[in-house]
Design a protein around this nucleic acid. Structure first.
Length: 594
RNA sequence: GCGCCCGUAGCUCAGUGGAUAGAGCACUGGUUUCCGAAACCAGGGGUCGCAGGUUCGAGUCCUGCCGGGCGCACCA
C-alpha cells in the first residue's frame, strides 16, 4: 500500500499537473512546523521560477484545484481520476497558504483513521515490497582467522546485519557473507610463529591462538627479517604447501568456532561463512583473462591493472593483482570474490560494510571489476563505509590498559552493566535466573547495537558504555522498556476481555501518535535507499517517546467509551508492531518481560 | 604535496535548499490512591568553525581559509 504522505503527494502532484506544472513539485512531506500544519508542500515556490509568477499566486491556484478534485470537472487529470475523498471521507480538513508560498495541509481525523485502519490490516504495516526479485550480496563482519575479534568488528557486523535485514524486508533476496580474512600476511605470521616455537603441526587451542597472533605481529614489527620470513611463509601457504595448509586448517577451525560464538552472542547472522581462501582457485584464471584482454600489465615487478579514469581529481594507484613475489593481495581476492559471487548469485548489488578508511581500496576494486568486465554496469557495487569507534576521550577505543578491547569482553561488560541495572531497579526480581540472564543479555545487546546504529554510518562515533547502558533517554533499553510495557498492557487488556478494534477514533490526545504511525513506510524507504539504519533508530525512538506521552495522557483500560478504548488499544497494538518490526530490522530482540 | 571525511547547545548526536535549527545526557522545577516512574510535563542553554558567493530562501549547494580525523603500489 502507499504511504500517507505519498497519497497526499499524488493528489497534490495532480493539481500541479492540472496547471501544466511538473508533477514532482507536488511532493508532500510532514510539516516541520507542526504548530501550523500536519503536512506541507513547497512546490509552489519552485514553480514560481518556472512559470515566472508570484509563488503565493500559484499556491492559491493549487489550493483551488485541490478543493475541486472529486467535486467537479477537474476530477480528471491526464485521464487519471483524482479525488480528495477516501472511503467516503474528505481527505483535507483545510489547505492554507503561508509565508512566501508554503501550502499547508491538514487532513481530517476520519481520513487519518481510515488510513491507519488500512495499514493495521497489512502485515507489512504499509511498507511496500519491491516487485522485481533481485539478489543483494552483503559483505560484512570480516573477522580474521587466528586474530582475536575486537571492537573494530562490531560496527561492520552490526551495521551489515541490519542492512541485510532491511534489504530482506524490502523484498530482496539477501546473502550475508562473513568473508573471513584467511589468506593474508597474518596467516604467514602465525605459521612462522608456530614454526619458531616448534609446534607447527600440533593442534593449537583458541587460548593459545589468542596469545600467538599478537606475539607474531609484534615480532614482525620489531624485526625485519622476521617479517620477511612471514611474507615468504604466506607465499608458500598460498602456493599450497601441504604442512602449512594443514596447520592453517586446524587453527582456522578453532578460530572460526570462537568467531561464531561472538556472532552468536551478538545475534548477527550470516548465510555464507566464506573467506578469501575460497576463491583461491579462481585467481589464476581471472588474472589470465585480464592479461589476455590486455587490462593487466607489469609495473615495477608486479602485475597490476590500471584504474585511472578521465577526469580523476586525485592520483589513482593501480590495483595490484600479483605482487612482485607472485603472491596475491586482498584486492586480488576481493576481485576474485566478485567473480565468484557473479557466477553463483548474479546479484543486482554487492554491498561492502567495511571501514571508511578503505574507500580508496574499494574504488580501485570496483573500477577494476567494471573495467575487466567482471561485473556488468547493471550491477551496483557499493562501499557502505563507516567511521571509527572512539572512546569517550575522542581517540580510538582502547581498554584501560591501553590495548585493543576484545569483542567478547565488551559484550560481557554490557551484560554485567545490564544485570547490575536490573538489580538496582529491583526489576524482574521474581523471574527465575535463566530468564533473567536472557533478559540481561537482550538488554545488553540492545544497548550496544542501538548505540552503534543510531549514529550516522559514515561519521566516527564515541563509544561510551556507561552512557549506552544507562537505561535512560535515547537508548536501546529504553526502547525495550516501552515495547515491553505496551505488550504488558495488551496482555492486561486481553485478560479483561478487551480487544484492539479495527477502527480508529482520533481525538486530540491520540492524534500525534496516529500521525507518527503513518510515517513508517517513508522512513523505511529512506533507510533502504541510503543504507542508513540510523533513520530507523530515530523513528523507533520517536515512536517510543510519542507512545509514552500518549500513555501518560490517557488511561486506556479504564476508558468507558468502548469505541475509544478499542481504538486506543489498536493504537497500542500498532505501535507495538511497528517498534517490534523496526527493532527487528536493527537486529534487536525484545524480551517478553523485563 | 594530492585526495576523502568531519566541524551544529557544556557533552554525545539528528537535521531529503524552505518557515521559529531539534533530540538525549547534564542542569532547574513539577507529576505517582489508576494500565510498568527505566516514565511523563515544563524551563534555561546556539555567531550551525570563519569569510565570501549562488538563490526569493543556505546548517544544507559552490569557492577560499582555519581546526580535527583518515588515506595515498607490493599489510588487511
Amino acid at each position: 500500500m502507499t504511504s500517507l504522505a505519498e497519497k497526499l503527494t499524488e493528489i497534490t502532484g495532480a493539481a500541479f499537473a492540472a496547471l501544466d506544472l511538473p508533477v514532482e513539485l507536488g511532493q508532500v512531506r510532514v510539516s516541520d512546523r507542526p504548530d501550523l500544519a500536519q503536512f506541507q508542500c513547497n512546490g509552489a515556490m519552485s514553480a514560481a521560477k518556472l512559470a515566472s509568477k508570484n509563488p503565493r499566486e500559484i499556491a492559491g491556484e493549487i489550493q483551488t484545484k485541490l478543493l475541486g478534485f472529486g467535486h467537479d470537472r477537474d476530477t480528471y487529470v491526464n485521464s487519471e481520476y483524482v479525488s480528495v475523498h477516501y472511503q467516503g471521507h474528505e481527505v483535507f480538513k483545510n489547505i492554507e497558504i503561508a509565508g512566501p508560498g508554503f501550502i499547508n495541509l491538514n487532513i481530517t481525523d476520519e481520513y487519518l483513521a481510515a488510513h491507519l485502519a488500512d495499514s493495521a490490516v497489512d502485515e507489512r504495516l504499509g511498507v511496500e515490497k519491491i516487485t522485481k526479485q533481485e539478489t543483494i550480496v552483503l559483505d560484512y563482519g570480516g573477522p580474521n582467522i587466528a586474530k582475536p575479534m575486537h571492537v573494530g568488528h562490531l560496527r561492520s557486523s552490526v551495521i551489515g546485519d541490519s542492512l541485510r535485514r532491511i534489504c530482506g524486508f524490502a523484498g530482496f533476496k539477501t546473502i550475508g557473507d562473513v568473508h573471513f580474512g584467511d589468506w593474508g600476511l597474518h596467516m604467514g605470521q602465525v605459521i612462522t610463529e608456530l614454526e619458531e616455537r616448534g609446534i607447527l603441526g600440533q593442534n593449537v587451542t583458541l587460548e593459545q591462538l589468542e596469545e600467538i597472533y599478537p606475539a607474531a605481529s609484534k615480532a614482525c614489527k620489531e624485526d625485519e627479517a622476521r617479517l620477511k620470513k612471514a611474507q615468504q611463509a604466506t607465499r608458500k601457504f598460498q602456493d599450497g604447501d601441504p604442512a602449512y595448509r594443514k596447520a592453517a586448517q586446524q587453527f582456522a577451525e578453532v578460530s572460526i568456532e570462537g568467531i561464531k560464538q561472538n556472532f552468536g552472542a551478538l545475534g548477527v547472522h550470516f548465510d555464507l561463512w566464506k573467506g578469501e581462501a575460497d576463491v583461491h582457485e579462481m585467481i589464476a584464471p581471472m588474472v589470465n583473462r585480464l592479461k589476455t584482454k590486455g587490462f593487466a600489465e607489469e609495473s615495477e615487478g608486479a602485475l597490476v591493472i590500471s584504474v585511472e579514469q578521465e577526469g580523476d581529481k586525485k592520483e589513482m594507484p593501480p590495483l595490484i593483482l600479483l605482487k612482485s613475489d607472485g603472491g596475491v593481495m586482498y584486492g586480488t581476492t576481493d576481485l576474485a570474490t566478485i567473480v565468484e559471487r557473479m557466477e553463483e548469485y548474479k546479484p543486482a548489488r554487492i554491498i561492502y560494510v567495511v571501514d571508511q578508511r578503505q574507500s580508496l581500496h574499494f574504488e580501485q576494486v570496483f573500477r577494476a571489476a567494471y573495467k575487466g568486465g567482471i561485473v556488468p554496469d547493471s550491477t551496483e557495487l557499493t562501499h557502505a563505509g563507516f567511521g571509527t569507534m572512539n572512546g569517550p576521550d575522542g581517540k580510538p577505543f582502547k581498554t584501560r590498559a591501553g590495548g585493543v578491547m576484545r569483542l567478547e569482553e565488551l559484550i560481557s561488560m554490557g551484560i554485567e552493566k545490564a544485570t547490575a541495572r536490573l538489580d538496582e531497579a529491583e526489576l524482574a526480581r521474581d523471574i527465575e535466573a535463566s530468564e533473567r540472564a536472557d533478559i540481561a543479555q537482550k538488554v545488553a545487546i540492545a544497548a550496544i547495537k542501538f548505540a552503534d546504529l543510531q549514529n550516522n554510518r559514515i561519521a566516527d562515533y564515541v563509544f561510551d558504555i556507561d552512557r549506552m547502558t544507562s537505561f535512560e533517554g535515547k537508548t536501546g533499553p529504553y526502547l525495550l522498556y516501552q515495547a515491553v510495557r505496551i505488550k504488558s498492557l495488551l496482555r492486561k487488556a486481553q485478560a479483561q476481555g478487551f480487544e484492539p478494534g479495527k477502527e480508529f477514533t482520533i481525538q486530540d490526545s491520540d492524534r500525534s501518535l496516529a500521525l507518527l504511525l503513518t510515517e513508517l513506510p517513508d522512513v523505511f524507504e529512506g533507510a533502504l535507499k541510503n543504507y542508513t539504519p540510523h533513520l530507523l533508530c530515530e523513528y523507533a525512538y520517536r515512536l517510543a517517546q510519542e507512545f509514552s506521552s500518549f500513555y501518560a495522557a490517557c488511561h486506556i483500560l479504564s476508558e468507558e467509551d468502548e469505541a475509544l478504548r478499542s481504538s486506543r488499544l489498536a493504537l497500542c497494538e500498532l505501535t507495538h508492531r511497528q517498534i517490534a518490526l523496526v527493532l527487528g530490522l536493527l537486529g534487536i530482540e525484545i524480551p517478553e518481560r523485563m
